[in-house]
Simulated assay, not measured.
Amino acid sequence: MAENKSAVAQFSAMMKDLVAILRDTVIFLIFMLLLFAPGIINERLTAAGFTKGNIAGFEWQAQIQSAAETTRTAGQTIEQATENYDQLIERINELEKQVNDPGVQRELSAINSVAKDSRSELASADQAIKRSLVVQQQLTTQFAPQLLEETGWIYVGKINEEKSSWLAGSPTTITKTELPIEAGQVVTIRDDVYLRADGASNARASAPVQSVVKVGQRVEVLEVEFSHARSGGWFVWLKVVRRD
């Protein structure tokens, strides 16, 4: 009888060791997949109905996609408000040149100053939105890099009426690049810039924000497009694809 109990105990211990080995092997395999194919893990778990989990200490959360969408919407709203302020400031500048009454000029100057301050605050908020979206993109692409948009439109700056030279302060989002810019050319991003979806050719700034192309990344130009500015010159938009 004692021999039977000893045999059962030995079998039980052997099974426990076997289970432990299998568990460690599975954890190791999952760990390797998390390192080299995180998108597959996330895709399978999300398809199975899981949106949050913790495996071997690594937490992922599919809901970050929803957070990123909220951030993109906020960024688009701020960009539109910034564009409106630019147009307002431009209009006030035109009015200041047309008005001769000193009192009216002072009032316009005061309004212009307030508009510029507000525009500056929006620019700061916009940079914070872009940094937040970059972080969210990095977290998302650890598990599903295929979700990151690779192609879209970016704004790069303003050129003169003849399209022969950049105006002061441009290009704003890419490193200094000789004109004309042509399809197939690779340029480097110098300031975080929104990558926008396709939309109306005369309303690129209103197209949905897809993601952010961050400082230092390179993109290949697919198309070049110009939209005329009220004050003269042209706004330059590029359709690009990420290269790194």
Rank of each mutant, 00 (worst) to 15 (best):
E3I: 14
S6Q: 11
V8W: 10
V8E: 12
A9C: 10
A20C: 03
A20V: 06
L22A: 13
D24M: 09
T25L: 08
L29R: 14
L29C: 06
L34P: 00
L35Y: 11
G39S: 00
I40S: 00
T46G: 04
A48S: 07
K52M: 02
G53T: 05
I55L: 06
I55F: 04
A56M: 03
F58Y: 11
W60V: 01
W60C: 01
A62Q: 11
A67Q: 12
T70E: 14
T70P: 02
T70Q: 13
R72W: 09
Q76W: 12
T82K: 15
E83K: 15
R91Q: 13
I92M: 03
E94Y: 07
K97N: 10
G103V: 15
R106G: 08
A110K: 12
S113P: 08
V114M: 06
V114K: 13
A115W: 12
D117I: 15
R119G: 03
R119V: 11
L122Q: 13
A123Q: 12
A125T: 10
K130V: 05
K130I: 08
L133W: 08
V134M: 04
V134D: 09
V135E: 10
L147T: 02
L148T: 04
E150F: 00
T151E: 05
G152P: 04
G152I: 04
N160A: 00
W166K: 07
W166G: 06
W166P: 06
L167N: 11
P171N: 07
P171Y: 05
T172G: 05
I174C: 06
T175G: 09
T188S: 08
T188F: 06
R190W: 02
Y194S: 06
A200S: 08
N202S: 13
P208E: 05
P208V: 05
Q210Y: 02
Q210W: 02
S211W: 10
S211I: 14
V213R: 02
V213H: 01
K214N: 11
K214V: 13
G216Q: 02
R218D: 05
E220I: 12
L222A: 07
V224A: 00
A229H: 09
R230S: 15
G232C: 13
V236L: 10
W237R: 01
W237D: 00
V240I: 08
R243K: 14
R243H: 02
